[in-house]
Structure formats: structure tokens, C-alpha cells
Amino acid sequence: MINKVQIKVRGYHLDIFQHVNNARYLEFLEEGRWEFFEDFGVGTDMMAQGIAWVVVNININFKKEANFGDVLEVQTAFSKLGNRSISMQQNIVNSKTLALVAKAQVTYVCFSQARKEAVALPEEYRHKIEEAIIGLNEPA
């Protein structure tokens, strides 16, 4: 499963050099992940059971600048499944030029809110995630 979200670059996303500030990419990526989890349909169920996804690592590689008015597509997919963790791959692509603007790898742990520790992913979610793991290809 690949989820795609479009974000238009606004003036408040820019830094003094008039391109998207690096901290804004974290927000764009997070928006992509929230949309992914909503569409995937496990976030609300897990939270009702006292289980949450907690980000433990984010690595971002910046490839090209994005500027005012650009429409960016945030692509999100599961890329790896561990016993207590999942990894997601995300690409940010300029919708007009199809250039890769940034790519990120995000790792989550399955976290019990009651126990305050990482726990094994429940089997029902494990199977659903295994079926959805495909990863992303970089645009040409």
C-alpha cells in the first residue's frame, strides 16, 4: 500500500533563503504518515487497546530544494516489519517536475501505554502490515 498526500508550499514554509526550511519537511512527512494510518485503518483500533506507534528514529536525505507554490507529493509505505517495530519509507516528490525532493526512513515501536514499554505487535496487525509492505521506488 502506498499512500499519497499533496501539500502546496506556502510562504510560512520558507526560510530566509526562500526555499522550504528543513524543519518543515518533518511536518510534511508527519502529515503523510497520519494520512497513511487513517487510510490503513489500524491507528484508532490500536489506540482503543492502549497501544500506540512511537517514533524512535527518522533519517531524512534532502535531494532538491522546494520553493513557494510548488506542489509536493508525500508518498508513504511500510518498508520493514520487526517483532516490536515497523519502518516506513517516505518520498517527497515535486508533482510538476517529478523530481525527488527528499526521502526518509522512519522507525516506530509498538508501545503499551499502560506498561510504558515497547511490546510485540498484536498478530492481527502483524498480518495486515505484512500484506502491505512494498516499499517505494525513487522517481526516475
Rank of each mutant, 00 (worst) to 15 (best):
M1W: 10
I2E: 15
K4L: 06
V5K: 10
K8M: 06
V9G: 00
G11N: 13
G11L: 02
L14H: 02
D15R: 04
D15P: 03
I16D: 10
I16W: 11
Q18C: 09
H19W: 08
N21Y: 07
N21K: 00
N22S: 03
R24T: 13
L26P: 07
L26F: 14
F28W: 01
L29Y: 04
L29C: 06
L29P: 00
E30V: 10
E31S: 03
E31L: 02
R33L: 09
F36Q: 12
F37K: 09
F37C: 04
F37M: 11
E38G: 09
E38M: 12
D39Q: 15
F40Y: 10
F40A: 06
V42N: 15
V42M: 15
V42G: 14
T44A: 14
T44F: 12
M46I: 04
M46F: 10
I51E: 01
I51V: 09
A52P: 07
W53Y: 09
V54Q: 11
V54E: 04
V55F: 13
V56D: 05
V56Y: 06
V56M: 06
N57A: 09
I58C: 00
I58R: 00
I58H: 03
I58L: 08
I60Q: 05
I60C: 00
I60M: 06
N61C: 05
K64S: 08
E65P: 10
A66T: 01
F68R: 03
D70P: 00
V71K: 11
E73D: 12
Q75W: 11
T76I: 06
F78H: 05
S79H: 02
G82P: 08
R84V: 14
I86Y: 09
S87P: 03
S87V: 03
S87A: 13
M88V: 11
Q89K: 15
Q90C: 13
V93Q: 08
N94Y: 08
N94T: 00
S95T: 13
S95G: 06
T97H: 05
L98I: 05
L98E: 13
A99E: 15
A99F: 05
L100Y: 07
L100F: 05
V101E: 03
K103C: 09
A104P: 10
A104V: 11
V106H: 08
V106D: 11
T107N: 05
C110Q: 02
C110F: 04
F111V: 08
S112P: 05
S112G: 04
A114W: 01
A114Q: 14
A114V: 08
V119S: 02
V119P: 10
P122N: 00
P122K: 06
P122C: 01
E123K: 14
E123I: 12
E124F: 09
E124S: 09
R126T: 12
H127Y: 07
K128G: 14
I129D: 13
E130C: 01
I134N: 15
I134F: 10
I134C: 13
L136P: 06
L136R: 01
L136C: 10
L136T: 00
N137D: 15
E138D: 15
A140K: 15
